[in-house]
Design a protein around this nucleic acid. Structure first.
Lengths: 370, 370
DNA sequence: CCATACATACCAATCGATTGGGCGAATCCG
DNA sequence: CGGATTCGCCCAATCGATTGGTATGTATGG
């Protein structure tokens, strides 16, 4: 590890090459000694040309182009100097940065963190690095983050903050950078996506409640211009009406417990005979449970609540949350995999993959009581 | 947004410069048309030299060096072409990448995700980007991720996977790249860190239990070569012995619920008269509660459990977890802030900041009953 | 009306690595 | 022992942006 220490083995080695110190013409002042050995240093020390060193160290040593002995010597010198390929320079020359940008509303969100983790695993596995940004679902943040990532020549984008009509997303399309949306889609053609099967998930939730005998069901929706909220809301209405019912619903501003509390409070006031709540996600569901209790009712005794996502620890909440499971890992894994495929094959037609939901019955739902 | 569409305004504009197509000597084949306009394109279109364009677009237009009119024209052309500064080229020339690498055991972990979020906020605020990697606490992963980040010329590292004797960390020190450890420290001198005040936190936990009358207390520790585990274990032993007591303890392999379950199961078997458990973190505590229940006992009725961290939703678990709160946001915020300060002032002496703990009493602890 | 000063824009080298082409030398065959 | 071929390495241009130094043109003063 201690590269610096072993430098002395090679005798007086100038860490910074001195041969270019006074270019009499014009040019820039020599950069301050960075200490980092460059390819040139390695080549000089090994007594070969930089190109030769490059070929060896980049593994591009085509069959029989370079003697095994030479290669070994170069590798050994590189090792002793603690040489590290400068990815920046390499990227500039080759046009490949091996960087993928990922934009999420908030990494601190459990569900999104899981997706991020999965995507990271896939990318690392393929030699890519992950540039991550949280936007708090703010358009300006998204815009500047995307700009930064495109400026950094990210080879692809994982975009998890799509709104229905998303100008930032349009910019990405125009830039021609490969991208995959996840969690949400936008009204932008030609863009691949990996999202939960919102409709069938919601259908499962509603049917579960209907099976338990509930007839007065309300919906706590997510933000109004987010595809998942819309899909879930639509499916809620459709499934109910197929059963000859209707149900009150409100949209939250954000996917937070506070909003779930606020919306549900309102809904319970408007429709006091409500016996069940379908929430657009687990955090809203937690807030809904709070509202139920706040109103003096119990969950699931008086009001049943179903969430969506099956976020980590949903089984440890009190009551354990009945919810629709979407595998975060699967979603993140598929999104990243799809993106890498698109990068390799740009001609590939856009596709939208749906992650299948699964009803997980726990303690926040029960038979209607009265 | 639709840069491409407005290109026509400028008439026949060669997206890719054609003036350098046949350099008769040697050299490389011209790169494929990337479509991305470069500074050269902007300059040509605006009728100025690239250097002029550079100065304008980088905001380095020193007072009175460039006419307002010229500057405006350049900016306008850049806008029309959809020009975006190539960060890679800029970084190569200036030596500044504005990238910070962050290494965590697992972003999907609630507590770490919060820290990541906070750090990301600070970095974004200062114009930096965040390169993130999870290592699963695996040494080889850490090694390759650090190598990738150093290769990418990250200007600094936030290192959250330090082991007691960490070769990777030594490599970072040798590389001379500014770094800040968080959550854990290692036996490596000269490295700044932001960590929880493990000792006083644990003291709070143990005293809380003593106050409740507990005398038979065991400790579920974290991995043995992680500083926080050691600090917490030491403080556990010291605080107990100050009260004239001793307590059984085991170390877990990882900070997971499963391990908490396994260890606690063993401890309860060894010391069946145990009335309280101090866990090195909340996930272990959750496992401990599982073990208590599994053994037919109740929490907090028969056995009290205290966690550490106050992870998100700790208040919603069943029972709501009594724990030692460490502000994740504060920790991440301070770590990132410190790193940026170190980057600016490299001479700065290393420092270790402690994040103060706070006892949060909830439902997993109660008075000793017998 | 000429010389000096100042404002403005251009020149060219540079960051570090990559890579197609070319040249000298060693090897092989007759 | 000479010529042809293969082998091993080097040359130099290049990716795109930055920046100190300099040349050109205009305004000002004597």
């Amino acid at each position: 590890m201690n590269h610096r220490g072993r430098l002395s083995v090679l005798g007086s080695l100038p860490i910074v090459s001195e041969s270019r110190s006074d270019q009499s013409t014009s040019g820039t002042a020599p950069s301050p000694p960075s200490g980092r050995p460059t390819l040139r240093d390695v080549a000089r020390e090994a007594g070969v040309h930089v190109s030769t060193a490059s070929r060896v160290l980049s593994g591009q040593a085509a069959a029989g182009r370079i003697t095994a002995e030479t290669a070994e010597r170069i590798r050994s010198v590189a090792d002793q100097l603690g040489y590290r390929r400068n990815t920046v320079a390499r990227a500039l020359r080759t046009g490949r940065t091996l960087v993928i940008g990922m934009i999420v509303p908030d990494v601190a969100n459990l569900y999104q963190a899981g997706i991020t983790r999965a995507a990271g695993d896939v990318l690392t596995e393929s030699g890519y690095s992950l540039l991550l940004a949280s936007t708090d679902d703010d358009l300006e943040h998204a815009r500047s983050q995307v700009a930064a990532m495109l400026g950094a020549q990210a080879e692809g984008l994982l975009y998890g903050v799509a709104r229905q009509d998303d100008p930032v997303l349009r910019g990405v399309v125009d830039a021609g950078t490969p991208a995959v949306l996840f969690n949400r889609v936008g009204r932008v053609p030609g863009m691949s996506a990996v999202i939960p099967d919102d409709r069938s998930g919601t259908r499962l939730a509603v049917k579960h409640l209907l099976d338990l005998g509930h007839r007065r069901i309300v919906h706590v929706g997510g933000p109004e211009d987010v595809s998942s909220s819309i899909h879930r809301f639509d499916a809620f209405v459709e499934t109910l009406s197929a059963a000859g019912l209707t149900g009150e619903r409100h949209f939250a501003e954000r996917h937070t417990e506070d909003e779930g509390l606020r919306i549900t409070r309102d809904l319970l006031e408007e429709s006091p005979d409500t016996t069940a709540v379908v929430a657009a996600n687990d955090r809203l569901a937690l807030g809904a449970i709070d509202a139920v209790r706040e109103s003096g009712r119990s969950c699931p005794g008086d009001v049943s609540v179903v969430g969506f996502n099956d976020m980590p620890y949903a089984d440890r909440f009190s009551p354990a949350l009945t919810t629709i499971r979407i595998s975060q890992y699967d979603l993140g894994f598929r999104a990243a995999t799809l993106l890498l495929e698109i990068i390799v094959d740009r001609g590939r037609p856009a596709e939208t993959q749906l992650v299948s939901p699964e009803l997980v019955v726990r303690d926040s739902t029960g038979p209607v009581s009265d």
